[in-house]
Design a protein around this nucleic acid. Structure first.
Lengths: 108, 108
DNA sequence: CAGAAAGTCAAGTGGTTGCTTAACTGTTTA
DNA sequence: TAAACAGTTAAGCAACCACTTGACTTTCTG
């Protein structure tokens, strides 16, 4: 079956963050907005490749971009990260509760 | 270039969680350990497909499995989820601090 | 011991991803 | 206004991913 993560917001975020280049872009944007060429500068790939990464991040809602003149400015949008973070936290804490129950069970 | 996310622990976790089937497996395992066939039961795909998903989750460190006799038991390993969660939290809080600074700047 | 149960391995397939180069559009600057 | 700058679009390619079916192994059960 085709990956059909088209209507899957959390899935798109995880997918976006699975790539090390895209995580590097996020880590860079944490220190403030940046233009496309500024983001591309430390990355060992062509400009179009960087733009494709930015499109993935934007479709996932991880970043927001805005074009002024010929320059596109990119900044982080924390909401998407928070959604993914909450999903992770939910699973993990439930899992840990489960582990606690197992520990108790084993102690008896 | 090959995807080389081979030596990228966080990347493997995000990659694993990008797939809705694998997230469903995680959500199931939150309610306690389960066997391979039990996990496969609600999923609309063949057993080998489920096993492949489990292998992805295990290589990412998200689950741990153990075979006893002919039955393999799978359970959640919260550590990997916590690592990914912390990365997300770090980026997000820094991003929010950045946003706060922007707000302050705009208020002046 | 024969057969069912639980899982695994291998090979193949169609769609997706991460990149490339080449050609191009719009915007600023000298 | 010509040239440089910032970004974009399009086409193409090799590797990867999510499945499938078929053959198989190992372990339990009647």
């Amino acid at each position: 079956m085709p990956n059909q993560s088209g209507a899957d917001p959390i899935g798109r975020v995880f997918q976006a963050l699975a790539d090390p280049t895209r995580r590097a872009i996020v880590e860079r944007l944490v220190r403030g907005p940046a233009t496309v060429t500024a983001l591309a500068e430390p990355l060992a790939m062509s400009l179009p490749a960087v733009i494709q990464h930015l499109q993935v991040l934007e479709r996932a809602g991880v970043i927001v971009t805005e074009k002024a003149g010929r320059v596109r400015s990119c900044r982080l949008e924390p909401t998407a990260l928070r959604t993914a973070e909450r999903w992770l936290g939910d699973q993990r804490t439930h899992g840990e509760r489960q582990l606690d129950r197992l520990d108790e069970y084993l102690k008896e």
